[in-house]
């Protein structure tokens, strides 16, 4: 399904849920803004959906100019892969902490995307050193040490 149709559809669904949840709040002060904004977004999403559907009918044979047409499948795979990197890095930070996750991620990402091993290694080493210098030494902040290490008592 087209992203231009999917977005208002998802938003409309989400707003129905938002309004349903907010209706159960005990005080008017708590529910008024949510129900008002939710209803407005719901109406707007339905208007947008109707516009997209009529537009799609009219332009059934003409693909939209702002969409990248070729290699649609390859693009989806690429989105999936980059999404995995994005989420994976977040998970690595949660499990291993910043100062293990950052060098691992930087090295792995750069190496797998075609960088030379020494460039990946140097960037992977310099970036956490820079972050450590600023956040820990200079600003005396306590950064997350990682669930695994904390459970082991480090």
């Amino acid at each position: 399904m087209n992203v231009h149709i999917l977005i208002p559809l998802i938003v409309a669904g989400a707003m129905v849920a938002v309004i349903a949840v907010a209706s159960g709040y005990p005080y008017l002060q708590a529910k008024l803004s949510v129900i008002f904004s939710g209803s407005l977004v719901l109406v707007l999403a339905l208007v947008q959906l109707a516009r997209e559907l009529t537009l799609k009918k009219r332009q059934a044979d003409e693909p939209r100019a702002d969409q990248r047409k070729p290699e649609h499948h390859a693009e989806t795979v690429q989105y999936g892969l980059e999404f995995a990197w994005l989420v994976g890095f977040g998970l690595m930070i949660y499990l291993l902490g910043f100062f293990v996750a950052i060098p691992l991620y930087v090295f792995a990402y750069m190496k797998s995307h075609g960088s030379r091993w020494w460039a990946s290694l140097i960037t992977g080493a310099l970036l956490p050193a820079f972050c450590y210098g600023i956040f820990v030494l200079l600003l005396e902040m306590k950064l997350h040490r990682g669930e695994i290490f904390m459970r082991w008592g480090f």
Binding site: L86, F89, Y105, G114, L127, H144
Partner: peptide, 19 residues
Amino acid sequence: PPRVLVPTILSVVYLGSYT
């Protein structure tokens, strides 16, 4: 290139969010 920029900036972005 994005292979250098993406991991570098993403690290700073996650650190910035956390702090």
